[in-house]
């Protein structure tokens, strides 16, 4: 609860500020692989950022660092003016729960739970009353066009419908920032467009979105496009990105 107070978003400030972030993975044989090199990025409220780049460029790793699922090896990361490196597991978990929503390429829905139960999963770790959570979940499922399928398990939903459930789940706790990792990666073109329409609408409602995609058409829907190449950020003109430029 205290964490929520200390990291409450300030509309005037940027949501996330990354400075000189690097990430190195140590392989089983002791071999070190640096996937991010001194990455700096400001994510402001209302941004819709597309991180593009080839496979292994480091874009997903950056997204996971922004989402507190991965820790940076070096550099500074402030989320809501709070130094992420000083957060313990409880604080990082609370921040993920209340400030960040995730959407993944593989949807990651619990196979034995209904669409409604999957959406409600986000509310497990909050103190929001059940009734309020349920009303919110039903409203979100209606918003994504699944009000008639709230009791369907994932196996009875199409890929697009499953991603809509995942979107509703990501929005249940009214996150300040939605992180989407290849949200249309497993969808056909028409379904991708409908998901992107939804993301655009969500962004228009004030939710900041950072999306990883390798699809230029999908990336074009974002207001800012940043390319990740060899662990470094580049703006569309091919120049190395500086935070002030990116902002």
């Amino acid at each position: 609860m205290d964490n929520q107070r200390t990291i409450r978003p300030d509309p005037a400030a940027c949501l996330a500020r990354l400075r000189e972030i690097s990430k190195t993975f140590i392989q089983p044989g002791g071999l070190e692989t640096q996937v991010l090199h001194n990455v700096s990025l400001d994510i402001n409220e209302g941004d819709f950022i597309a991180l593009t780049g080839g496979s292994g460029s480091g874009k997903s790793t950056l997204l996971y660092i922004i989402g507190l699922l991965e820790q940076a090896s070096g550099g500074l990361y402030h989320l809501m003016e709070r130094d992420v490196s000083a957060m313990n597991d409880d604080e990082a978990s609370a921040a993920r729960n209340r400030l960040i929503g995730f959407v993944f390429q593989s949807f990651f829905l619990i196979p034995y739970a209904s669409a409604l139960e999957n959406v409600l999963l986000s509310g497990t770790y909050t103190n929001t009353p059940e009734k309020e959570l349920r009303l919110r979940a039903e409203a979100l499922l209606e918003q994504v066009g699944l009000s008639d399928r709230i009791h369907f398990i994932p196996a009875r939903l199409s890929g697009g419908q499953q991603q809509r459930v995942a979107l509703a789940r990501a929005l249940l706790n009214k996150p300040a920032m939605l992180l989407a990792d290849e949200p249309t990666g497993q969808l056909d073109t028409a379904t991708s467009r409908s998901i992107m329409d939804l993301l655009t609408a969500i962004n228009a409602d004030g939710t900041t979105i950072v999306m990883v995609t390798h699809n230029p058409e999908v990336a074009d829907r974002a207001a800012r496009r940043i390319t990740v190449r060899d662990g470094r950020l580049h703006t569309p003109d091919g120049q190395r990105s500086r935070p002030e430029e990116a902002a």
Binding site: D90, L121, S122
Partner: peptide
């Protein structure tokens, strides 16, 4: 997947 997802949704070690 369930474990990773729940952590992404805010579950801490204790949960």
């Amino acid at each position: 997947m369930e474990i990773g997802l729940k952590k992404a949704l805010g579950a801490n070690h204790k949960a």
